[in-house]
């Protein structure tokens, strides 16, 4: 029996939750591309505002999530503006001639534009990730784009193991701390810790390989044609959204 993508947890959010991953993917890539091609501060500000508007109306984020996202934007964006203002060249010093080529008006404008570009990339990515169920992405890749199942399902397996391995990493780290009781100082000691943690983590991942591949082989994965339990449909709103995204990106690049 075919199953449509109407899981309540995802359909309950904003309008972006009801759009298929492919059209959202087109929005994600076209917005990123247009932002990369835009150098003006005004242009970047328009793209940033458009992503905020789409997230506000369509992502259905809670106040806590908004706080987290905006906090991250400030935590990442402000130091980045500061650093870029310092290393970008310009002609008009903002604090008198004493600072020479540094802290110029041109550098500040460009630093703000480049930081907004980075924030557009981050926000679009977060909007896509929080409004798209990973298994829908896999279904869309295999069903609509004819991506080889081994590749698409490998990504799904990877995604499944991130939280498990993260938990294991935390346990390994605590165990290492307990063994030494006091944390050794110095770069060499820290590098030693990183090496030991990396080795333990890789070993944990390798331990899972046989279990997962045996389970997949037992289910006859990769033998014969694959059937899809989930059938994704592309709604008219999705098609319109993709068309608008592409149009806006082309217009933005053409106007530059």
């Amino acid at each position: 029996m075919k199953h449509r993508d109407t899981s309540s947890a995802w359909a309950a959010g904003g309008w972006l939750h009801r759009i298929d991953p492919l059209t959202k993917g087109i929005w994600l890539l076209s917005t990123g591309f247009a932002s990369m091609m835009t150098t003006s501060l005004a242009g970047q500000a328009v793209w940033f505002a458009s992503v905020l508007l789409i997230a506000w109306t369509g992502a259905g984020w809670s106040l806590t999530r908004w706080r987290l996202v905006l906090g991250w934007c400030a935590g990442f964006g402000l130091p980045l503006i500061w650093f870029q203002w310092l290393v970008l060249p310009g002609q008009t010093p903002l604090f008198g001639s004493g600072t020479g080529r540094w802290f110029t008006e041109e550098a500040l404008v460009l630093a703000a534009a480049l930081t907004l570009r980075a924030l557009v990339m981050f926000l679009t990515s977060i909007v896509f990730a929080t409004t798209t169920e990973p298994r829908d992405v896999v279904a869309a890749l295999v069903g609509k784009l004819r991506v080889p199942p081994k590749f698409a399902y490998a990504a799904a397996v990877a995604l499944r193991f991130v939280p498990l391995l993260t938990r294991e990493a935390e346990q390994i780290r605590r165990a290492q701390q307990l063994r030494t009781l006091t944390r050794e100082k110095g770069l060499q000691a820290r590098l030693g810790e990183v090496k030991q943690l990396s080795l333990a983590l890789v070993r944990s991942a390798l331990r899972e390989v046989q279990t997962v591949s045996t389970a997949m082989e037992a289910k006859q994965f990769g033998r014969g044609a694959r059937t899809q339990r989930r059938e994704l449909s592309i709604p008219l709103s999705g098609k319109l959204f993709a068309l608008l995204s592409c149009g806006a990106a082309i217009l933005s690049v053409w106007l530059i």
């Binding site: 990442f76 990504a155 890789v202 390989v209 046989q210 997962v212 591949s213 994965f221």
Partner: peptide
């Protein structure tokens, strides 16, 4: 298939590393 699974788990490890390094990166 086993090699594909290994590749997937190594990619997952990168996800773990990214998460562990995120504070240091910031």
């Amino acid at each position: 298939l086993m090699e594909w699974v290994l590749m997937a788990l190594l990619a997952a490890l990168n996800g773990v590393a990214t998460s562990l390094l995120s504070h240091l990166n910031q």
